[in-house]
Nucleic acid binder design. Sequence first.
DNA 1: GAGGTTGTTGCAAGGTTTTGCGGAATTGTT
DNA 2: AACAATTCCGCAAAACCTTGCAACAACCTC
Lengths: 348, 348
Amino acid sequence: MPGLSEIARAAGVSISTVSRVLNRRAGVNEETRQRVLSVLAEMPYTPRGLGALQRTGVIGLLVPELSNPVFPAFAEALETRAARLGYSSLLCNTRSGAPMGEEEYVRMLLARGVEGMVFVSPEITNVEVPLGQAPQPSYYAKLLADGVHMVFLNGATPALDVPDVTVDEQLAGYTATKHLIELGHERIGFVSGPARSLPSRLKRAGWAAALEEHHLPAGSDLVAHAPFSAEGGGQAMATLFETVAPTAVICSSDHMALGVMREAHQRGVSVPDELSVVGFDDIPLAAYSSPALTTLAQPIEEMATAAIDELVLRLDPDRRRPGSDNYTRVFRPRLVVRESTAPPKQDT
Amino acid sequence: MPGLSEIARAAGVSISTVSRVLNRRAGVNEETRQRVLSVLAEMPYTPRGLGALQRTGVIGLLVPELSNPVFPAFAEALETRAARLGYSSLLCNTRSGAPMGEEEYVRMLLARGVEGMVFVSPEITNVEVPLGQAPQPSYYAKLLADGVHMVFLNGATPALDVPDVTVDEQLAGYTATKHLIELGHERIGFVSGPARSLPSRLKRAGWAAALEEHHLPAGSDLVAHAPFSAEGGGQAMATLFETVAPTAVICSSDHMALGVMREAHQRGVSVPDELSVVGFDDIPLAAYSSPALTTLAQPIEEMATAAIDELVLRLDPDRRRPGSDNYTRVFRPRLVVRESTAPPKQDT
DNA sequence: GAGGTTGTTGCAAGGTTTTGCGGAATTGTT
DNA sequence: AACAATTCCGCAAAACCTTGCAACAACCTC
């Protein structure tokens, strides 16, 4: 919407100068250049050629990382659905290199003429982002005000009027724990992601609810926090082994669960005989570990489809339906029992 | 360089019509639209606003798929290195949806103002692409002629003057096979990717060379082709079990190797006691399977660094060094021995 | 078969961005 | 302190893209 003139006025220079800065032509003082650039960062400018070219048929997909295979799996499902609807996708790894945060990536995408975007497990999910690099709560709000179309996948926030698609994390935690309780376990640990991660908190709530329902302990000594990674899972499990030695654990992700199983293997603890493990996500490789991982499946395809469909609905003025904002869809996780869970050995 | 008017003249329509096509406005006949689009494909048009904005600081990364974890791993390494040099990356999954091939993706990226790109295992690697959707050999040549900066990663072709970074696939096949021979195996199979894949062919050559060196059989009955996936690996292994029943196999990728191990597990064949398995790539999860996978590591970080550095060198006129085209770097794969290989049981 | 309707295209006006040029400000030199 | 050189910026003209409008053609309807 804003043209060069807006930028120029805000920066206190002439249109010509802004144009020169944008085209990296010589003859602009460094100080002036910086001033213009900072204004440019505030009010995202897309060159008219592209800005007016509204229907680029390109959407952005923002994922927090690529090492946990859920994210590639989500990305692929999202891309496939988008392609079917005639959109091509640009994938961005928001934690790729330290220097570039989610926010800058979004600005870049906007400048590249992206029509809308899907945030997978966005920053906003982190209850307290470390100080300094915190995207202000206003950041997404600003985007929203700018008329950027977006959808959250597994990272809703009630404060914002953005459509979102999620799994019921709490139900997932509850179901996993219940499964273990029914097998006869009584000391059930939780290998959790970082404490600031909202999904991990929700899972913990479900875990605690199931345990309390059966009058089993749900103290914080049964919970070990670690980064989301296989290594993290291994470390957290190491802690639990040393302290409470649970007979079963649930994990924040399959990726962490793999680390847990490796740690058990290295300690000579047999899975599932001596330790039952439940993962989350049902990544494609979960069936290929040995023992094959019992896990709670996110319906990745369905969720991806729902997210893309909702986004496209908002993109395409023809298909836009009347005032159905505040769209939220919650999917139920599905328990997939494989080989990594079994009743506890009775010699406990 | 060419403006709308050029395109219009070439397509035999007015400027207005071209503008309408570009903006996907209604009111253009489908036939006319196609004509304009085909002209547009010939002379890639970048809207003035972006074409002039030459230094966008964005590069494109094209990977063939995301389900095999090597590709996310490469993508992450490439992104990290690019970010360190001040470039942000756009990742594209070229097989995401059927409708969009590698070529269209490249055009799209170019139109989005990408400065250069890295092709990971590009289409060109396929010796004979299925008829019809074949990117003409001239396709990359055309890009090259248009002055697009690119680098091939694991997919060189001597016909083109494009820098490339690869692992020595043949050496990988040789080393893996040699390792198994030294353990005492004599009937060594090869679970290969599709026959048209050049890397698989090279690995096979290395495999055959090692076997022949020790006067061991290397017939085509020991080779089973299947798609690059865990399922594919399982199927290929099933075939081998039924026919030659090897005591060891090497695989085209770790991903396939996981499928092989699963198939063995399901048949009650113990790895490594009754079947030794060697993978390729050393994906991050290779250490987390059980038994942990013996594999040939691609030095992913180093290769990614080399590829990005070479690309950036060509992008940045200041750093460009004199006439050092035809750059090629070959990395040696590294044997990582874990738990999936052992001497054959002597009851054979 | 005439008139109306719908769809497609070019023209020209209007708005936005680029760029050549001149003037002002700053710096260095004598 | 004055002059010259350089750098930097705004003005205005030119180039470019978008869009309303009208013309034309094809098709349908009566």
